[in-house]
Design a protein around this nucleic acid. Structure first.
Length: 822
RNA sequence: GCCCGGGUGGCGGAAUUGGUAGACGCAAGGGACUUAAAAUCCCUCGGAGGUAUACUCCGUGCCGGUUCGAGUCCGGCCCCGGGCACCA
């Protein structure tokens, strides 16, 4: 062995090992019914140009899990691809005068190289990019099938409109109410858009959360709240001289307290009122200047204006005013609410501001209609008063009674409402998948037939950023109607990029199929066993992907109900206390770290710094320690190997001395802990810490006898195997040094030797009044009474208990003794 | 504003089921080796008192509660982060 190989030189070594993997095709997999499969997927990146540290964290987690599962003997598929459509490519096109396609493909090339340098065990033969026609043709086809099934429709929706650039802006492009390029004040504008009926699946999407046992509770909670199922009543208020007004409420028991009805600024009634009232018209144009996002709307000061119209209360026939209010959302329910100021805080604030009557009808006491609502509304359920025939009933009884009465009069209907809205998928942008529809004057909307797909996005375009170039490309939009062959117009909107990321996980199973979207291989690989990605995707992406999976299932394209069996939501990597993003310019480029320390160090650091689900604040000072550890392990294995490796690690347990037994116990305690940490808990940071502890112990173990060296070999082999998922390059070489010919990525995970774990005595802590006062050594299996006696006999304990009354002694065998005195 | 998380030494974090708070590592300080530096090795390292590696008290964002025992459970607050439907 030459001296040069004795020093750890990550750059040459990593390149050499990566070449070997490539040559062997180590991570290319095929379906094999005889083996248990494991599909490990990390959320694919947007090709922004460079990997940032959040990617490194995400993909290292996925890679460690994949390599760990390989060592458990599973047939592991870990693919990678590119979420390649999106706004940043358009921004770059404007900035650098380069077509989005060119920019994107160059980024992909660069980032793929970066991923390879990190040594991830990807099956690159399955690589896909969503901006390639081979990929998006199938979602175009899928869309046309959904259209046939009636799951797609058009309706008007509000967008951010830049009146100077004459274009639609994304929320992100609106900076403090102004267009990011033009600086013009943004307006709300209604335009016709395509929608997917996700609400038709609301119930199943909610119910099936119950079978996702491998998902974090918090993600399921967020999704459940997002879907927002609520049971209530849709009530009809007739309006003088107008169409009836439908109002949904979850609190029909408060109906007698309704003193006003409010509609959203976009509601037909409001628009009608504006024709005759200048005040209403002014208010609507004021509202039209506010942002479209819910976050913005909800922070607005509550404001409104009386339309002058009156609604008829369905049960009392009282005339109550109809207002327009800026906090009523047109997109939720019917865009109108009944206001019950006494029992809804928002309504209470509104009524207080505009001196509308506040009429309490639900009270905390059955017999005593008294309540103080001078400081705020009474939100709890209770007992009804001032409610006609329903006086004296509980809220629950009144809910039923009032609902039934309204139904019998044809003035209302029990209804389940969802907060979830249908998914608007149209984008008035260039760099996206063309929506495959043709508008024909005679035939109406005509989906592009399968044989005409894909509708390719022209890639050589002039792009100035104002409006989509597709709208000025007659060769793109001037087409013949597929039905009647008359001249017609092609849709120039593209899909929301979430469309692409909603099914890529299935396509990886058969990325090479040129004749259909999915095939039989999906049945082998799906569902994804482990999905890894950022917590910021907890609702939107993960909900859309679940929805698409159900659509695909209902079309017979796959069998599984849910796409992701287990989910690991990786915490954000923050820089300066906030999310890293290109637009904020606070990203950390891991490349410099790889150049300086090598990929293994970067991987080790990313996994050791924090548990995967934690948010972590970036700091580069600790990388040094990760590098030091690899060097130490390297030297230890080299030193050991130089004395000659020990073949076979069989040692006769009965003949070992205490130190030897101690190290063997440590080895197997570590294997036991690390297996659990990596396999079940995904606590990679503590798994690494446990290996570091073991390495420290080996370091202090000075036994050079044949038996001692055999145990040393066992320890080093265990560490190399357990760290191979994290440090695949270094461990590849170290495993060879320890005398193995089969590469470590094909080795089996070490097994726990139960015999080595045996202990004769254990330590127990003795407390007095809950404070630690002593530690005692007791034989394993000692009964509680004997433990108590030992504890009370300890000199540090007698000091604390003498002259006091012992009221209680709690003994938890194997854990603790607590003596209660006073 | 609404929904979901988080808050433990100088720093990242550990404590898995309510049972020894601070594992492992970083930074810092001291020492060994070296002509020197780097690397490496050894020691100290939550705060206060104390000669002390004896011992005592305090200590997990704040206030209160449950319990023999609370970082962990419950109630109320404060601060920070994520999402809020056209960033991905």
């Amino acid at each position: 062995m030459d001296a040069e190989q004795d020093t750890y030189n990550p750059h040459d070594l990593e390149l050499q090992v990566q070449k070997e993997w490539d040559r062997q095709g180590s991570f290319e997999v095929v379906e094999d019914e005889s083996r248990e499969k494991f599909y490990c997927l990390s959320m694919f990146p947007y090709p922004s140009g460079h990997l940032h540290i959040g990617h490194v964290r995400n993909y290292t987690i996925g890679d460690v899990i994949s390599r760990f599962q390989r060592m458990q003997g599973k047939n592991v598929m870990q693919p990678m691809g590119w979420d390649a459509f999106g706004l940043p490519a358009e921004n770059a096109a404007i900035e650098n005068r380069v077509p989005p396609a060119k920019w994107t493909y160059e980024n992909i090339k660069y980032m793929k190289d970066q991923l390879k340098r990190l040594g991830f065990a990807y099956d690159w033969s399955r690589e896909l990019a969503t901006c390639s026609p081979e990929y998006y043709r199938w979602e175009q086809w899928f869309f046309t099938r959904l259209y046939e099934k009636g799951l797609v429709y058009k309706k008007k929706a509000i967008v951010n409109w830049d009146p100077v650039d004459q274009t639609v802006l994304a929320n992100e492009q609106v900076i403090e109410g102004r267009g990011w390029r033009s600086g013009a004040v943004i307006e709300r504008k209604e335009i016709t858009q395509w929608f997917l009926k996700i609400t038709a699946y609301a119930e199943e999407l909610l119910d099936d959360l119950g079978q996702l046992n491998g998902w974090p509770e918090r993600v399921k909670t967020m999704q459940a709240n997002w879907i927002g199922r609520s049971e209530g009543v849709e009530i009809v208020f007739s309006v003088e001289g107008q169409q009836d007004l439908q109002v949904f409420t979850t609190r029909p028991d408060t109906l007698f307290g309704a003193t006003c009805v409010a509609v959203a600024p976009e509601h037909a009634l409001a628009v009608h009122a504006a024709k005759t009232s200048e005040r209403v018209a002014d208010f609507l144009s004021e509202c039209a200047k506010t942002r479209t996002s819910e976050a913005q709307i909800s922070t607005l000061e509550k404001n409104g204006v009386d339309t002058g119209l009156h609604a008829i209360h369905p049960l009392t026939a009282e005339k109550i005013p109809v207002w327009v209010a800026n906090f009523v959302l047109i997109e939720y329910g019917s865009g109108a609410v009944m206001m019950v100021p006494a029992h809804d805080q928002r309504d209470w604030e509104f009524a207080s501001k505009f001196q509308l009557p506040i009429r309490p009808v639900v009270f905390p006491h059955k017999d005593r209609p008294q309540i103080d609502i001078s400081e705020g509304a009474f939100l709890d359920k209770g007992w009804l008063h001032n409610s006609g025939e329903f006086d004296g009933l509980s809220s629950a009884q009144a809910f039923d009674g009032i609902a039934s009465l309204l139904e019998s009069k044809g003035l209302g209907q029990r209804q389940v409402n969802y907060r979830l809205r249908d998914w608007g998928i149209s984008r008035q942008r260039y760099w996206g998948c063309p929506i495959p529809v043709i508008h024909c004057e005679d035939c109406g909307m005509v989906p592009v037939p399968k044989e005409d797909l894909p509708v390719c996005l022209p890639e050589q375009v002039d792009f100035d950023g104002a409006a989509s170039p597709l709208k000025s490309l007659p060769e793109f939009y001037q087409v013949d109607c597929p039905k009647c062959r008359k001249p017609a117009t092609r849709e120039t909107d593209t899909f929301d990029t979430f469309f692409e990321s909603s099914w890529y996980f299935a396509r990886y199973c058969c990325a090479d199929n040129e004749t259909s979207m999915l095939d039989d291989r999906v049945r082998y690989w799906m569902p994804v066993d482990q999905y890894v990605g950022g917590i910021e995707h907890a609702v939107l992406h993960l909900l859309y992907a679940r929805f698409f999976n159900k659509l695909m299932r209902d079309m017979g394209l796959c069998e599984n109900d849910e796409p992701f069996d287990k989910l690991l939501t990786q915490g954000m990597v923050l820089k300066d206390g906030t999310k890293m993003s290109k637009s904020k310019g606070n990203t950390v480029d891991p490349e410099a770290l790889i150049n300086r320390y090598g990929a293994d160090t970067v991987r080790l650091f990313a996994m050791f710094a924090a548990p995967p689900e934690h948010t972590m604040e970036w700091s580069d000072s600790a990388v040094e320690g990760a590098s030091r550890f690899i060097n130490r392990l390297w030297r230890m294995v080299q030193d050991h190997a130089q004395q000659g490796v020990v073949a076979g690690t069989g040692v006769s347990h009965d003949t070992l001395n205490d130190d030897q037994l101690g190290l063997r116990r440590k080895i197997h305690e570590t294997i036991s802990k690390v297996t659990d940490d990596m396999g079940r808990r995904h606590a990679f940071n503590t798994a690494i810490a446990a290996n570091m502890e073991l390495v420290n112990e080996v370091n202090h173990f000075q036994d050079t006898s044949p038996v001692g060296r055999a145990i040393c070999q066992e320890a080093l082999e265990s560490v190399v195997l357990m760290l191979a998922p994290v440090l695949p390059h270094a461990c590849h070489i170290l495993w060879q040094r320890l005398g193995h010919e089969t590469p470590v990525d094909q080795a089996s995970w070490p097994r726990v030797d139960e015999q080595a774990l045996k202990k004769d005595v254990i330590q127990m802590i003795v407390q007095v009044n809950g404070k630690k006062r002593a530690a005692i050594q007791v034989p394993v299996g000692m009964d509680s009474a004997a433990i108590e006696k030992t504890a009370l006999g300890h000199e540090s304990i007698t000091r604390f208990v003498e002259n006091k009354n012992i009221t209680k002694v709690i003994v938890v065998p194997g854990r603790i003794v607590n003596i209660v005195v006073h």
